[in-house]
Deep mutational scan, measured.
Amino acid sequence: KKKPLTQEQLEDARRLKAIYEKKKNELGLSQESVADKMGMGQSGVGALFNGINALNAYNAALLAKILKVSVEEFSP
């Protein structure tokens, strides 16, 4: 059984999803295209955005690059 995410991890996910929602049209992104760039399925990206799975440093760095932001913008 997976450990529930901490409040901090949930807040990171909320900020990440908000940045994605704000930038997806400008950058021409969908959850599917983000998933392709990350080498995972769309459901995996959804789980990161919705605070189901915790972000690790690798995925955080990859998402920051895809969204053209710094990791600190969603994970201070």
Results as ranks from 00 to 15, higher is better:
Ala60Asn: 08
Ile19Thr: 07
Lys23Gln: 05
Ala47Met: 10
Thr6Lys: 09
Met38Ser: 06
Lys37Asn: 07
Leu27Tyr: 05
Ser30Lys: 05
Ser33Ile: 12
Met38Leu: 13
Gly41Met: 12
Lys17Asn: 06
Lys17Trp: 05
Lys2Trp: 10
Val69Leu: 03
Lys65Arg: 12
Asn56Val: 02
Glu11Phe: 05
Ala47Asp: 13
Ala60Thr: 05
Phe49Thr: 04
Ala61Met: 10
Leu62Cys: 11
Phe74Arg: 03
Gly39Thr: 05
Asp36Lys: 15
Asn56Met: 00
Arg14Thr: 08
Ala35His: 02
Glu26Lys: 10
Lys23Asn: 03
Leu48Glu: 04
Gln31Pro: 15
Asn53Cys: 13
Leu27Gly: 05
Ala61Gly: 13
Asp36Trp: 11
Asp36Val: 14
Lys24Val: 04
Pro76Asp: 06
Leu63Arg: 05
Leu10Phe: 10
Arg15Gln: 02
Asn56Ser: 12
Met38Ala: 06
Ser43Glu: 15
Lys65Ser: 10
Ala61Asp: 12
Gly39Pro: 00
Arg15Val: 00
Ser30His: 07
Lys24His: 07
Glu72Gln: 12
Ala57His: 14
Lys2Tyr: 12
Lys24Asn: 00
Lys3Tyr: 12
Ala47Gly: 10
Ala13Val: 01
Glu73Ile: 09
Gln9Pro: 02
Met40Trp: 04
Gly51Phe: 00
Lys1Ile: 12
Gly44Asp: 15
Lys2Asp: 13
Asn53Val: 15
Met38Asp: 03
Leu48Thr: 04
Glu8Ile: 03
Ala35Asn: 02
Lys3Phe: 13
Asp36Asn: 14
Lys68Pro: 07
Ala47Ser: 09
Ile19Phe: 02
Lys1Met: 12
Ile52Glu: 15
Gly41Leu: 13
Val71Gly: 04
Gly44Ala: 15
Ala60His: 02
Phe49Asn: 03
Ala13Asp: 01
Glu21Trp: 06
Asn59Ala: 07
Val45Ser: 03
Gly51Leu: 00
Arg14Lys: 13
Glu21Pro: 00
Lys22Gln: 12
Gly44Met: 14
Leu67Gly: 09
Val45Leu: 12
Phe49Ser: 04
Ala57Ser: 14
Gln9Ser: 02
Leu67Asp: 11
Ser43Tyr: 12
Pro4Lys: 14
Lys3Leu: 13
Val71Ala: 06
Gln31Gly: 00
Leu63Tyr: 02
Glu72Pro: 08
Ala35Gly: 10
Gln9Lys: 04
Asn50Trp: 02
Lys37Ile: 12
Gly39Val: 04
Lys17Met: 08
Tyr58Ser: 14
Ile66Cys: 04
Gln9Thr: 01
Gln7Val: 13
Ala54Trp: 01
Lys3Cys: 11
Asn53Leu: 10
Ser30Thr: 15
Asn59Ile: 08
Ile52Lys: 13
Glu32Arg: 13
Ala61Tyr: 09
Lys37Tyr: 13
Glu8Tyr: 01
Lys68Thr: 04
Gly39Met: 08
Ser43Trp: 05
Leu48Phe: 05
Val34Leu: 13
Pro4Gly: 14
Pro4Asn: 15
Ile19Cys: 08
Asn25Ile: 13
Ser70Pro: 14
Gly51Ile: 00
Ile52Gly: 09
Lys68His: 13
Arg15Leu: 02
Gly28Ser: 09
Ala54Cys: 09
Leu48His: 01
Ile66Leu: 09
Ala60Glu: 09
Lys17Tyr: 07
Pro4Trp: 12
Ala13Ile: 03
Lys37Arg: 13
Ala60Asp: 02
Asn56Glu: 07
Gln42His: 12
Met40Val: 08
Asp36His: 14
Val45Pro: 07
Leu67Tyr: 01
Glu32Gly: 10
Leu29Asp: 07
Met38Gly: 03
Arg15Cys: 01
Asn50Glu: 12
Lys3Pro: 10
Thr6Trp: 00
Gly46Ser: 15
Gly28Ala: 10
Thr6Arg: 09
Glu8Gly: 07
Glu73Cys: 07
Pro4Met: 15
Ser33Gly: 13
Leu27Asp: 04
Asp12Ala: 09
Asn56Gly: 05
Val71Ser: 06
Glu72Thr: 12
Gln9Val: 00
Pro76Asn: 04
Ile19Lys: 05
Lys23Glu: 02
Asn59Gln: 14
Leu67Met: 07
Glu26Met: 13
Ala57Lys: 14
Lys68Gly: 12
Asn50Met: 05
Gly39Ala: 08
Gln42Gly: 11
Ala54Glu: 10
Leu5Glu: 08
Ala64Trp: 00
Ala64Lys: 05
Pro76Tyr: 07
Gln31Asp: 12
Gln42Ile: 15
Ser33Phe: 08
Lys37Trp: 09
Thr6His: 09
Phe74Lys: 05
Lys2Arg: 13
Arg15Ser: 00
Lys65Thr: 07
Gly41Ala: 15
Gln31Ser: 11
Gly41Ile: 11
Arg15Lys: 08
Gly39Lys: 11
Lys2Ile: 12
Ser30Leu: 02
Leu62Pro: 05
Leu62Val: 11
Leu5Arg: 03
Asn53Tyr: 09
Lys37Glu: 13
Asn59Tyr: 08
Leu67Lys: 10
Pro76Phe: 11
Glu32Asp: 11
Asn53Glu: 15
Gln42Asn: 12
Lys23Pro: 01
Leu10Tyr: 11
Asn25Tyr: 12
Ala47Cys: 10
Glu73Ala: 08
Val45Phe: 01
Glu11His: 10
Glu26Arg: 09
Glu72Arg: 13
Val34Pro: 01
Ala47His: 10
Ser33Leu: 14
Ser30Arg: 04
Glu32Val: 10
Ala18Cys: 08
Leu29Lys: 02
Ile52Thr: 14
Lys65Phe: 00
Asp12Phe: 02
